[in-house]
Simulated scan of single mutants.
Amino acid sequence: MKTHPSELFFYHCAAQPVDKKALAYASSIADYVNQIDICKEDITETQWESILLKLDMHAKDLLNRAHPDYQEFIAGKDFDDAGWLEILVKYPYLVKAPIVIYHDKAILCNTPSDVLKFD
């Protein structure tokens, strides 16, 4: 897939109000913001794996452990790497914060201003 050199990828759940603030920051540092609503668009296991490699994180670290669905379906269970990728595909709304990829680097934006770490 060909991308513009100054394109920023913003993976988020549009229903989250905090994500809107992070998107505003993202728009201030990049000319091209490609919004990917992970709650509406299907992200494959391969795409999640690529994102995790850029973040240098494990799938479990992306998830909101306080969410009731995490507590009901995931907490206390042991998963291998493939299992965690399946969880991201099945429950993308459990991702606790937006993910920004810019210039082939990625960050998990725990606060909206984390986007400015790219600037």
Results as ranks from 00 to 15, higher is better:
1 M>T: 14
2 K>N: 12
3 T>L: 10
3 T>A: 14
4 H>M: 14
5 P>D: 04
6 S>K: 10
7 E>C: 10
7 E>V: 05
9 F>Q: 09
11 Y>H: 05
11 Y>G: 07
11 Y>I: 07
13 C>M: 10
14 A>G: 13
14 A>V: 06
17 P>L: 05
18 V>A: 12
18 V>S: 11
18 V>Y: 08
19 D>I: 11
19 D>H: 15
20 K>D: 11
21 K>T: 15
22 A>K: 02
22 A>L: 07
23 L>G: 13
26 A>Y: 02
26 A>R: 00
28 S>F: 13
30 A>S: 13
32 Y>Q: 11
33 V>R: 00
34 N>P: 03
35 Q>D: 13
35 Q>H: 06
35 Q>W: 01
36 I>F: 10
36 I>R: 14
38 I>Y: 03
40 K>Q: 15
40 K>R: 13
41 E>P: 09
43 I>F: 07
44 T>G: 04
45 E>H: 00
47 Q>N: 01
47 Q>G: 01
47 Q>Y: 02
48 W>H: 02
48 W>S: 05
49 E>I: 00
50 S>C: 03
52 L>E: 00
52 L>K: 01
54 K>M: 10
54 K>S: 10
55 L>P: 02
55 L>Y: 02
55 L>R: 03
55 L>M: 01
58 H>G: 09
62 L>D: 05
63 L>H: 04
64 N>Q: 00
65 R>C: 11
66 A>S: 15
66 A>N: 07
66 A>G: 12
68 P>R: 00
69 D>G: 03
69 D>L: 11
70 Y>M: 01
70 Y>A: 00
70 Y>F: 13
72 E>S: 10
72 E>T: 09
73 F>Q: 11
74 I>T: 05
74 I>E: 06
74 I>R: 07
75 A>G: 05
77 K>I: 00
80 D>E: 10
81 D>I: 13
82 A>D: 14
83 G>N: 08
87 I>H: 09
88 L>T: 11
88 L>V: 12
89 V>K: 10
91 Y>H: 12
91 Y>C: 03
92 P>K: 08
93 Y>V: 11
95 V>M: 12
96 K>Q: 14
97 A>M: 09
98 P>S: 09
99 I>W: 00
99 I>K: 01
99 I>L: 10
100 V>W: 06
100 V>C: 10
103 H>T: 01
103 H>E: 15
104 D>H: 11
104 D>G: 09
105 K>E: 14
105 K>F: 14
105 K>P: 14
106 A>W: 06
106 A>L: 07
107 I>W: 03
107 I>H: 03
110 N>V: 11
111 T>G: 07
113 S>L: 07
113 S>C: 08
113 S>E: 15
116 L>I: 04
119 D>T: 14
119 D>E: 14
